[in-house]
Design a binder for these strands. Structure first.
Lengths: 249, 249
DNA sequence: CAACCCAATTCAACTATATGACTTGTATGA
DNA sequence: TCATACAAGTCATATAGTTGAATTGGGTTG
């Protein structure tokens, strides 16, 4: 299945390769193609959409640049999966002040049902008061607690999510979204500020009350920039830092 | 002047378009092309390097994606200049917690000559103890102090830089680097942590001693990832945030 | 059965060419 | 003088095809 041949001149008069890109993204959002199995070949896509292979290539080029697709010469083009590496490099920006990056260990602190407050609902683009899940995680690096996460998920999108499901996963949480709910997080926007540790967070992170913490507010987005997760992280930056590098591979 | 036709098979056997990209970058680093005047047309570049226009295009595509070049249909391709907009969007990540982004106002606090310490020298890739300039700036947003900058520059690269030159500029500091010293900052890497305001910074930023501040350590890089500036920023995030969005235009 | 070879398929790189759109400067005409 | 029209140069889009490199799978051969 590839979808319809191409929206016949949608009035906006987009370039052909943009139309192809949109068509591909629609299929991706519909879960047409799953990670692990190759998309139809560039040749077949070109035939299907009635465009040249170069045009398909340009469309895929952009999706690859956005890290939504991955090409493997000789094998095919694939949906980028949320493997450990990807989560680590594109969605986890905490690094030791010295040393090299390292896979965090997760400890689930709590899981609860709640109602979305006004601000959260606006960010998630759901109705105020809608059902949400609230998850609190503690991330350990080298065995020591470093990050305290509070995650908010729109319940509607994550049917039958439970503490058990969360606890028994052996993958990253974004991989869980992807595999169990077909939700592929492709981008995140983060806003950072400084805060002071209160009693609860101080205890969990092993710092003094009043210690400086980095607060990260993240919105995770799927295709078409639809928000699917809110996350507030408190980071003890005594021995770790938030790394931001724009502009390079 | 376009430079040599193409390094004849440099052994590494890079794709042609990568070779072209390298050749272009060499010319950019040499200051061959200045902001404001167009590069040779794609046709002429293709003729010069003895490659097809498509190959030139692919090389330029990457440089455009890295925001090093800018294309204008019908006019030509240009070196991206450090206008107010670019500095604001690509190198200044502080935004009001509500409202829209705004151009900061700069106040020069001090200018001094100093010697590079070990850590700074390593980051700037210069000899420990080499001469550096140390600049302290206060950035105001909506008239209120928000960011305290301490900038370290390798003196060798900025001959005859003086307090007077800094004070009399009417542009961004990166524009000064570019116009007066031919140094084009094309990328920055930032590491963030949380800190507490000490006496001096508290006074300048108008906060209490012990208030939480965001500390940003930035390395600014020019072509070939050569570091040219270190900067430590202390940010009062009471009403502003650091914004990080990876992955989308 | 294992090792090897080979063909088919896929993406990667490159060339060549055509057409359209945008900008600029110049010539033309009232 | 001023406005319009036009031409030339530029990048943008799209097509078509060739060659090469990586992978896979199927045979063949020992």
């Amino acid at each position: 299945m590839i979808g319809q041949p191409l929206a016949a001149e949608s009035g906006g008069a987009l370039p052909l390769y943009k139309e192809v890109k949109r068509a591909l993204t629609r299929n991706l959002a519909a879960g047409e193609w799953q990670p692990g199995v190759p998309l139809p070949s560039e040749t077949r896509l070109g035939e299907h959409y009635r465009v040249s292979i170069g045009t398909v290539r340009k469309a895929i080029d952009e999706l690859v640049a956005e890290r939504i697709l991955v090409r493997h010469q000789g094998r095919g083009t694939f949906v980028a999966g949320h493997g450990a590496r990807r989560s680590l490099f594109h969605f986890f920006h905490i690094v030791p002040a010295d040393g090299a990056k390292e896979q965090p260990q997760t400890e689930l602190l709590s899981f609860a049902r709640a109602k979305a407050d006004a601000a959260g609902a606006a960010r998630l683009n759901i109705a105020p008061g809608a059902n949400v899940f609230r998850i609190r995680n503690l991330l350990l690096l080298r065995g020591a607690p470093v990050v305290l996460d509070e995650i908010t998920l729109p319940a509607e999108r994550f049917p039958r999510l439970s503490e058990k499901v969360l606890r028994e996963r052996d993958s990253t949480i974004y991989q869980l979204y992807q595999e169990r709910y077909g939700i592929n997080v492709v981008r995140s926007a983060e806003r950072l500020s400084a805060a002071l540790a209160d009693r609860a967070s101080a205890k969990l992170l092993g710092v003094d009350v009043g210690a400086p913490l980095l607060r990260i507010r993240r919105t995770a987005l799927t295709y078409h920039n639809v928000p699917v997760e809110l996350r507030v992280s408190l980071v003890n930056t005594a021995e770790h830092e938030y790394f931001s590098d724009l502009g390079k591979d």
